[in-house]
C-alpha cells in the first residue's frame, strides 16, 4: 500500500507531479482537521483500488504552506487531481467513498 501513497512537500511537489505518468490525486490535510482524518483511510483505499489509473499524494498544509497557497486551498480536506501539472478536478470537503469516486470518475 505504501507505494501507492507518496508524501509531498513544498520542495518535492513540482518534481513529483511532472515526473508522474499517471494522474496524481493530492490530499491537502493537517493534523488538526477532523474531517481530514475521516477521509484519509478512504483515500488510501482508493490508492490501492485505482493503482492502475492513479497515484495519491499527501500534502500537509501546516508544514507546506507554499503549495497550499499556490493552489488557493482555503478549506481542508481538499483533494486536487493533477495530470502533467494541470488541475483536472478539485474536491472540497470530506465525502463518502462513493461520492469521491463519482467525482473522480469522469477525469480518469
Amino acid at each position: 500500500m505504501a507505494e501507492d501513497v507518496v508524501t509531498l512537500s513544498d520542495g518535492s511537489f513540482d518534481e513529483e507531479l511532472m515526473g508522474s505518468a499517471k494522474p496524481i490525486l493530492v490530499d491537502f490535510w493537517a493534523e488538526w482537521c477532523g474531517p481530514c482524518k475521516k477521509i484519509a483511510p478512504i483515500v488510501e483505499e482508493i490508492a490501492v483500488e485505482e493503482t492502475d489509473r492513479l497515484r495519491i499524494g499527501k500534502l500537509n498544509v501546516d508544514d507546506n504552506p507554499d503549495v497550499a497557497r499556490r493552489f488557493e486551498v482555503m478549506s481542508i480536506p481538499t483533494l486536487i487531481l493533477f495530470k502533467d501539472g494541470q488541475v483536472l478536478a478539485r474536491i472540497v470537503g470530506a465525502k463518502s467513498k462513493r461520492q469521491l469516486l463519482d467525482d473522480l470518475q469522469p477525469h480518469l
Binding site: W32, G34, P35, C36, M74, V92
Partner: peptide, 17 residues
C-alpha cells in the same frame, strides 16, 4: 464560494485566515 473563503468548519479552516 464554499471552500474559497466560505467555510462550514472553523476548526478545519481557521488556519487559512
Amino acid at each position: 464560494l464554499l471552500g474559497h473563503g466560505v467555510s462550514t468548519c472553523a476548526t478545519c479552516d481557521g488556519f487559512f485566515f
